[in-house]
Design a protein around this nucleic acid. Sequence first.
DNA 1: AGACAGGGCGCC
DNA 2: AAAGGGCGCCCTGTCT
Length: 519
Amino acid sequence: MVVVPHPAAGGDTRGASTVETDDAGAPVAQVRRHRDLAVAVAEIESAHHPRWVWTSTASVYPHLLRAGVRVQRCHDLATTATITSMRAGTPGLPSDEPVDERPGLFDAAPAVDIDTVLAQFAEQRRVLSEDRRLDLLIAAESAGTLAAAEMGFDGLPFSADAHRRLLESVLGPRPAGYEPPRRIAEVTAEICAAFGRPLNPASHAEILDAFRREGIDATSTRKHVLKEIDHPAVPLLLRHRDLSKLYSTNGWHWLDTWVHGNRFRPVYVPGAVVSGRWASRGGGALQIPKSLRSSVIADPGHTFVVADAGQLEPRILAAMSGDRRMVAAAGADDLYAPVAAAAFNGDRAKAKVAVLGVLYGATSGDARSLLTVLRNSFPVAVDFVERAARAGERGEVVYSWLGRACPPPEPGFHSHGDVRARGRFTRNFVVQATAAEWALCVLAELRRRLTTDPDRTAGELVFFQHDEVVVHTRNPDLAAAHIEASVQSATRLLFGDTAVRFPMKLAVRDTYADETDGE
DNA sequence: AGACAGGGCGCC
DNA sequence: AAAGGGCGCCCTGTCT
C-alpha cells in the first residue's frame, strides 16, 4: 500500500508525497516528497505494483494517464466513503468530489494533508477488515474506477466517416447554419400539410391541439398512443421524432464533441447509480443507440470480442435466494426453458413474463397471476424478492449481496403509491445491485488479466455497459479465454461453489453492430 | 437568462 | 409485445 494525498489544486503536482503502509494503513516508512507525482508513481509502480491509496481515482488518475502512467491496483477513498456512509445511513455527507473532466487540469478540490488521508484510510481498513464481502466490493469498485478512467482515456474505436455517412443518408447533408436538416424540414412540412396548418412537431401541446381540432382526443403523444390514431400525420410524427432524436442527440454536433481521432471518449462515472451501476456524463455512452453501432469499427488487424451475460438478473436471483429449483434452472443455457417446463406447461413466453415480473414488481393483473403460478414452483426465489419489497414498504433499507445499502426512503413517503413504488425499488435493488457487483468483478478480473498477460496481443477493454464488455484485440481467442476465466472467477468470488451458470454470449466482429442489424 | 419539471425515447 | 426497476438526454413550457 502506498498512500498519496490529493495533489495540489490547479494542476500543480509539485510537493506530491507518498508513504508506504501496512494492510491496516499504518505507515511502515518515512513520508517521501516528490517533485512530480506522475514520475514518482511510475517509478514505484514499476518496482512493485503497490495498491495505491488516493482521495479519488477520478481526480488523480486522468493526470497520470495523460502522463503515460498506469497502475494495477488502487483503493479509492471517496468511493469507499460513499458506500460506507450509505451503509451508515448518512448518504452524501462525505466528499462529493467532482470528477476531472477538463484535460490538463486537476479539479478545484483543495489539497489534502497526507495525515488526513492516512487517518481516513486506516479507518476504512478497520471497517473493511471485519467484513470480507464489503472488502471485496471495495476492491472491485476501486478496480472499476481505474477501468473507467482508462476506457474514457483510450476511447471506443469509432469511425467518424461511417457516422457521417449514416447521418447524411438519414438526415440529408449537414446544415450550414441553424436550420434543420433537409429530411427533418421535409417531414415537418408534410406534417403541417396533413393538419392543414403550421405547427411545431416537437411541441406536445400543439400536436394534441391539432388532433383535437379534428375531433381526435389523445391523452398523450406517446408512440403507442399515436399508433392507435387513424390519421395521416401519425407516421410522419413518429418519423419526425426518430430523425430529431438522431440529429439532436447523436448528430454532427455530438460527433464534433465526443469523437476525436476515431475514438469516442465518454466520461464514465462508476457507481453513480444507487444500485452501483455506472453512469456516464455527456455523450450518452451507456445509451448508444443500436443504429450507431455499425460505426464502432475495430482498427485494422483488430476485432471486437463482444460479451454479454444472458439472463443475468434471474441467475443472480437464483444464486442469492438459493432456491433449489431455480438454481437448477439457472444451470441451463436458457433459464426460461426449465422454468417454463416446471410451472407453465412449457410456455416460455409466460415464464419470461413471470420472472421479469417478480424482479420488477409487476402490477398488471396478467403478470400478477403468472407470479402466483411461479411462486408455486419457486417459492424460495419469489419469497426472497417479496421480502425485500415488504422491507422497502416498511421504510427499511435493503442490501446487495456484498453489502451495498440502498438509499433510505424520502422522509415524506407515506401515500399508497409511494409505499408501493418503494417496494418495487427495493425488490429490484437487491438483484440489480448484486448483478452490478458480479459484472464489476468480471470487469476487474478481466482488466487484471488483459493488462498482465505476457502476450501483449490479448487486447484492451474499450466498453462496459451493465452486463456487457467489449475487448478490442488482435487475438480474439485469447481475449475470449480471458473473458470466460473472468466470469468463472467472479462467480466463485461472489457465490462460491454454486450450480448457477452465467453463460456469456460471445461474438467476434469487426463492428459493434449486431450481425442481425441490416447493413 | 437560467433553473426546473414533465413528457418522451432508448439503453440495460 | 408489454409490463415492472434503473439511467441520460432532448424538447417544450413555466417560473424566477
